[in-house]
């Protein structure tokens, strides 16, 4: 470069700084997905829905907590809270999962991702982690609110607080189970189409259609059939795993001695969804 051009030099600069590995790239993609889930860094329109859901869920938690503190009536315990909020969660994943994967498919941005040091599994993993985290926050934060209200109004001092912690932690794990299963199913459905509205409809439909099946099976005279009815619906499946692992909960039905079956199906369903997702994106990535 000549001496005289230096003053006006706005020429190209090579990048000499650090280049981060795949771990950091996946991390960046997870954070990006989490921001997308809650509409952060996007238009006000994109924020309305997630924050509305978040507001409702937290509002319910505050009411439940307050009623318990004032009147000593337990409307919902931590675990029941997660069950009761399930329809809102379905709405949430139905909107957010297409936002995470259908958008990328629609806008044709995937070749730009996969021409970088990013594998199909990394992409799936990051999107999955982001959605799991978003759903878990949606349940876990209100549960924490309930806990805080209970902890500050307890009459038993430290012992009461410890008791609440003992209730909260399994409930957080239970919320994580909700998050993992719902994220896996909804991402798989959403990855099949680039149209967000279709994807959202399909996610709601899958959860909606399977619930009546549970209702019908529950009316069968056989007790085994009643105990196994929950396997037909993802929502009841989680509920069943809850019944098996957290026996104090009482959602009004029972899994009898079939608890492990629920556990196995839940794990199998999650693994299956993720493998199908991976297969789908292996194909997409090579296009």
């Amino acid at each position: 470069m000549s001496e005289t051009s230096v003053i006006h030099d706005i020429g190209y600069q090579r990048y000499e700084g650090p280049r981060l590995g795949r771990g950091a790239v996946i991390g960046a993609l997870v954070v990006h997905g989490l921001r997308v889930a809650f509409g952060l860094g996007r238009s006000a329109k994109a924020k309305i829905f997630p924050w509305l859901v978040f507001g409702i869920v937290t509002g319910v938690a505050v009411i439940v907590g307050a009623v318990r503190a004032q009147a000593d009536i337990v409307i919902l315990d931590y675990v029941q809270f997660a069950d009761t909020m399930s329809w809102l969660i379905i709405l949430f994943v139905a909107i957010v999962a297409p936002e995470l994967v259908s958008r990328d498919m629609r806008s044709g941005v995937l070749p730009l991702y996969f021409s970088r040091p990013l594998r199909a599994a990394d992409y799936i993993g990051a999107k999955f982690a982001a959605l799991v985290a978003a759903v878990w926050l949606l349940l876990g934060v209100p549960q924490l609110v309930m806990f805080l209200i209970a902890a500050f109004t307890t009459d038993d001092g430290m012992r009461g607080v410890w008791h609440e912690v003992g209730d909260l932690l399994p409930a957080w794990a239970y919320s994580a189970l909700w998050a993992v299963l719902f994220a896996a199913i909804s991402l798989l459905i959403a990855s099949l189409t680039g149209k967000r509205a279709f994807a959202a409809g399909a996610v709601v439909a899958v959860f909606l259609m399977t619930t009546p099946v549970f209702g019908v099976l529950q009316t069968l005279p056989s007790q085994n059939a009643q105990h196994l009815a929950g396997l037909a619906s993802p929502m009841m499946l989680i509920s069943g795993v809850g019944l098996w692992l957290l026996p104090d909960t009482n959602p009004g039905w029972s899994v009898g001695r079939f608890g492990p079956v629920y556990g196995i199906e839940a794990v199998a369903l999650i693994v299956c969804c993720l493998l199908l997702l991976l297969a789908r994106y292996r194909k997409v990535a090579s296009l």
């Binding site: 700084g17 981060l20 790239v25 960046a28 990006h32 990013l118």
Partner: peptide, 16 residues
């Protein structure tokens, strides 16, 4: 925003 995001996916730190 988009090009920044793609930069991060290529392994650049946030500011870079």
């Amino acid at each position: 925003e988009f090009v920044t995001h793609m930069g991060r996916i290529s392994g650049l730190p946030r500011t870079a």
